[in-house]
């Protein structure tokens, strides 16, 4: 629930998000609608009460509820990748790809352990080695939150938080826009949307905007923001990638 509330709060500040409303906005709209229609007024006082109510947040595939699942969206994104030597021909303020990694893992059924993605861990190791950076050097990240639990698993697999402690980090607000490690500032797949083929580069576009200070209302307040990363996934975790961008 904390991931969902956080992602909606971010998407509210992203005009290009499919759901650019907070959970509180949705909750208040529904209360308003019930009032106007003369229906019984729901007694939700805060977001979590709304999310716990099966009438507001029905089961899709237990234990996953509606607001745990990303939509399948229409959308497009693009990235212009050129050699360092000619980058200045296109922009005065380019970013550099300093690390990239890709890992493969077993299908969901064949995994010995369902609490991590070995493909994310491998991709992360590769990207960190290539860049000479550590997880703590990455200041912001977009991760593949196809479902809310996936965000928690990925922030552990990327080494941002210890295994089993990702949920606490989210609960304590560390992954919010104003936290020490903002995650999915765009709203993530959950709220920005998941136009499957455009999702991976879409994540890089968000990191591009943040590192260049062009993210508008959702710009993270980190001083000297230089390093961001995007982690993506395919085939229920069979393939994962991590791309690390740096502003020099």
């Amino acid at each position: 629930m904390n991931v969902t509330i956080k992602s909606h709060n971010n998407a509210r500040l992203n005009p290009k998000a499919q759901f650019n409303v907070s959970i509180r906005d949705i909750m208040n709209q529904r209360i308003e609608r019930a009032k106007n229609k003369g229906e019984p007024i729901p007694a939700w006082r805060e977001e979590k009460e709304f999310l716990r109510d099966p009438r507001a947040n029905p089961v899709v595939a237990w234990p996953m509820h509606l607001y745990d699942c990303c939509p399948i969206s229409d959308g497009a994104s693009c990235v212009l990748l050129v050699a360092d030597e000619i980058a200045k021909d296109f922009t005065d303020n380019p970013l550099h790809v300093v690390g990239i990694g890709q890992g493969s893992g077993k299908g969901l059924h064949a995994k010995e352990d369902l609490t991590y993605f070995e493909a994310t861990r491998y991709a992360a190791q590769e990207a960190y080695e290539l860049s000479g950076l550590k997880p703590e050097d990455v200041q912001i990240a977009e991760v593949h939150d196809c479902f809310s639990i996936a965000e928690i698993i990925h922030i552990e697999d990327l080494g941002f938080f210890k295994p089993g402690e990702g949920y606490k980090a989210v609960e304590e607000g560390l992954t919010r826009l104003d936290g020490s490690k903002p995650i999915n500032t765009s709203g993530g797949l959950k709220c920005k949307g998941h136009p499957v083929g455009a999702t991976g580069t879409g994540q890089l576009v968000e990191i591009w905007k943040q590192l260049r200070g062009e993210a508008g209302e959702r710009q993270v307040p980190i001083k000297d923001l230089r390093i961001g990363a995007a982690q993506s996934l395919g085939g229920t975790g069979g393939t994962c990638t991590l791309t690390i961008l740096e502003r020099r």
Partner: peptide, 22 residues
């Protein structure tokens, strides 16, 4: 591990599964 699927694909809906019968 398991999940109880309430919103199923057409094939499963045909078999009589729905929100009330995941």
């Amino acid at each position: 591990a398991f999940t109880c699927i309430a919103i199923g694909p057409p094939l499963m809906i045909k078999e009589g599964y729905d929100r009330k019968h995941p």
